[in-house]
Every structure is written in structure tokens, then in C-alpha cells.
């Protein structure tokens, strides 16, 4: 296992190909829930958990179910079903055993089912760590790590954005640009800044 590979995955997933700012996955939730830091933080924790778990589950399904039975064309449909089921399941479990936590980020969980970031990382993993129907060495570890990093990238963008937007609450932004347009402008400048990491080599 190459430690440099981990760093490359980390820098790529968090900065260069940031799931929101560069791949535009989970953009809807990013713009909608980033008005305040606390819910933004809760949402990103939930997303991070789900991206990690769904990376693990979808890798197992792809490796031990879809490839052996030659059904990789069912990737999209099986992944989304598994993710939806998993999210439902987690929601039920959390509601049962940790009501406080459920109140903290329970309402965001159902939204995650249709959060493109989750399906996106599953599809990316199966594109990146499977070569011609075979898993690359340590593909499972890389996939899991990429799931965590994509979640971390989501959290970074969410936290920065929500803090900025909280501060802008007191500013007299030009009226046509209020809310969504300015949100996109901030995201654009953040994306420009993260371009500084382009071509990262360790």
C-alpha cells in the first residue's frame, strides 16, 4: 500500500476535485442548507457518514455480486437502491436508539438519498478502482478512504460557505444578487482559490 496514494486521494477529493466546488455533486443541498453553520455542520456529518458507508457497501456489491454474475450494467439501479435502503435503515436506527442525534441531523438524512454526492462517490469508486472488471490492489481500502475524503471535502465547503453566508447576513448585498446568485459567486471564488492545488504531486 502506497502512502502517497492516500495523500493524492485526499488532496484530490478535498481540494482539487472538491465534490461540490469542482464536481458539482450535492450542489442543491450545499446552496440550500448553507445559510447557518450549525445545520450545515450536521448535514455534512450525515453526508460524510453515508458516503463512507455507501462506498464500503457498493464496493462489496460491485465486487461480489455484479462482477461475478456479469451484471455490471445494473450498477446504477443497484447502487441507488442500496443507498436508499441504507439511508432509510440508518434513519430508523437513529430514531430508535438516539433520539437526540435524530433531532440533530435526522431531518437531513432523507435528503441524502437523493444527494448526488453519495451515488457519485459510489460510481466514481467503481470507475477508478476497478480495471476491466478486476479490482485494483487494495481497491477496497482506497474506495473507503475516498468515501471519507469526499465527505470531508463536502464538510469543508459547507463549513466555509455557511460561515461566510452568516457574516453576509448583515451586509447590504445588491438585491438581484441576494441569496442564490451570491452563493454561487462565493462558490466560484472558492473554486478559483482551490485551483491553487492543481497539479499537486507528492
Amino acid at each position: 500500500m502506497d502512502p502517497g496514494q492516500f495523500l493524492a486521494i485526499f488532496i484530490s477529493a478535498v481540494f482539487i476535485n472538491n465534490v461540490i466546488l469542482s464536481r458539482f455533486l450535492g450542489l442543491c443541498s450545499f446552496i440550500a442548507i448553507s445559510k447557518q453553520t450549525k445545520p450545515a455542520f450536521a448535514m455534512s456529518l450525515a453526508v460524510m457518514f453515508v458516503t463512507t458507508m455507501s462506498s464500503i457497501i457498493t464496493w462489496l456489491i460491485y465486487r461480489f455480486l455484479l462482477i461475478p454474475f456479469n451484471m455490471t450494467y445494473l450498477r446504477t439501479i443497484s447502487f441507488i437502491l442500496v443507498i436508499a435502503t441504507f439511508v432509510q435503515f440508518v434513519e430508523m436506527v437513529i430514531r430508535k436508539i438516539a433520539p437526540a442525534m435524530y433531532r440533530f441531523f435526522g431531518i437531513y438524512l432523507p435528503l441524502i438519498t437523493v444527494n448526488c454526492a453519495v451515488l457519485g462517490v459510489a460510481v466514481l469508486n467503481s470507475d477508478m478502482f476497478f480495471v476491466q472488471g478486476k479490482t485494483v490492489p487494495y481497491g477496497f481500502v482506497y474506495s473507503t478512504f475516498q468515501g471519507i475524503c469526499v465527505g470531508a471535502g463536502y464538510m469543508l465547503a459547507m463549513l466555509l460557505m455557511s460561515a461566510i453566508r452568516e457574516r453576509l447576513e448583515t451586509c447590504n448585498v445588491p438585491k438581484p444578487l441576494k441569496d442564490f446568485p451570491l452563493g454561487f459567486i462565493i462558490a466560484s471564488i472558492m473554486s478559483l482559490a482551490f485551483m491553487g492545488f492543481n497539479g499537486f504531486r507528492f
Binding site: 469542482s22 464536481r23 458539482f24 446568485p181 454561487f184 466560484s188 471564488i189 473554486s191
Partner: peptide
Amino acid sequence: LVIAMPPGALLVIALLLGFFNLIKG
């Protein structure tokens, strides 16, 4: 070139939305 890159996408949609809001206003 930046317009073809991710920051450009965000910028263009921001300005388009702002423009539509302006017309609506």
C-alpha cells in the same frame, strides 16, 4: 479559459440568475 472550468460554471450561473432577478425586479 476559466469559463470552461468549474469556477466559470458557477460564475456564469450566478450572473445569469442575477440578471433574471434584475429583469423580474
